Amino acid sequence: MPQLASLPGRDIHKIVTLSHRCGHADGVEPFNEQTVLALQKPASPGREHFLVPQEDRPDHIIGYAQLEIVGTTAETELAVDPDHRRRGVGRALLRTVIDSLESNVTQIRTWAHGDLPSAAALARAEGFGRDRVLFQLGRDLDGFEWPVSWPKEARENWPVGAGAPVDLPAGIGLRSFETDRDEAEWTRVNAEAFADHPEQGRWTIADLRDRMGERWFDPEGLIVAEDARGMLGFHWTKVEGGVGEVYVLGVDPRSQGTGLGRALTLAGLAHMAAHGIRQIDLYTDESNTRAVELYRSMGFEVVRSDVQWAKRL
């Protein structure tokens, strides 16, 4: 089973094709955004790619796993071509990943997107336990109760309705993200807002710029809240394939509990609605009860669950 520190372009194409085949068969893509972005990255300490070629067609990839070491924890995602499942390929791939780990790694975690029964069966059979649940919530904006008024910084095309007005705490204003100016401040607020989050909170400026380099990135869709002391929060919206997403919503701890998170949420939704978007998705941890309650109060419902499985080594 080939194990590579970086991938040639031909293998990247095959892995993306594998991912699309899995998505078509399962109704959900097998890899998260971080894994997909890492396919094209140069070799980096702690990251490995595992390929399973088809026996009678060595140029055809039927299985793939990506491994990332973070401190003493190994994180992996894997996928097996739908036509080659139930033959032990996934089990062999997972065991190969685990066997490759150094002795200082004490835990391995893996995502099962869509919480599919087959993934759960494999995880349990290999000694993993459910560790974390990520909700995907969604709603249609038709019939959304928009506020009767917005703060003075709001854009003229934001929709209005009969809902409660959006008022910002005193001294706080809204604006769009500015490239080559806001990266450091955004990274600081993101780290503080998600200090307890195992993935989002460790984003670096390089991670931010990776996303800024994506075709869907629009600085006007990254709405920033600030006061005289600096950035206090942000709502980063994403539009792709005609669907909007509450991509990242973060509030500095010094402004949590002030209503700023709700105001930023509404501002981002209004920005997307003003650009003709009607369907909105978002992701949040099941354990983040405050966020789940906020989104449910705005009419969002759970449409999918992703499960992270973990095993002590």
Rank of each mutant, 00 (worst) to 15 (best):
E55M: 13
L37Q: 09
K41D: 10
G63K: 04
L51D: 10
S44E: 13
Q40L: 05
L39W: 12
L51H: 09
S44G: 00
L67T: 00
L67C: 02
Q66N: 09
I69D: 08
P58S: 09
L51Q: 09
P45A: 06
I62K: 13
P42W: 10
E48T: 05
L67Y: 02
D59N: 07
L67E: 02
I61W: 11
Q40P: 00
D56I: 13
A43F: 08
L67S: 02
I62D: 12
A38C: 06
A43M: 07
E68M: 09
L51W: 08
F50D: 02
I62A: 13
S44N: 05
K41Y: 03
A38E: 12
R57C: 14
A43R: 12
E68W: 06
L37K: 06
E48H: 11
L67N: 04
G46V: 00
S44H: 10
I69S: 06
Y64P: 01
Q40N: 11
E48A: 08
L37H: 09
A65G: 05
L37M: 08
P58G: 04
D59M: 03
A43E: 14
F50A: 01
P42H: 12
G63P: 14
G46N: 04
K41S: 11
L39P: 04
Q40K: 10
G63H: 06
D56C: 11
P45H: 07
G46F: 04
E68T: 09
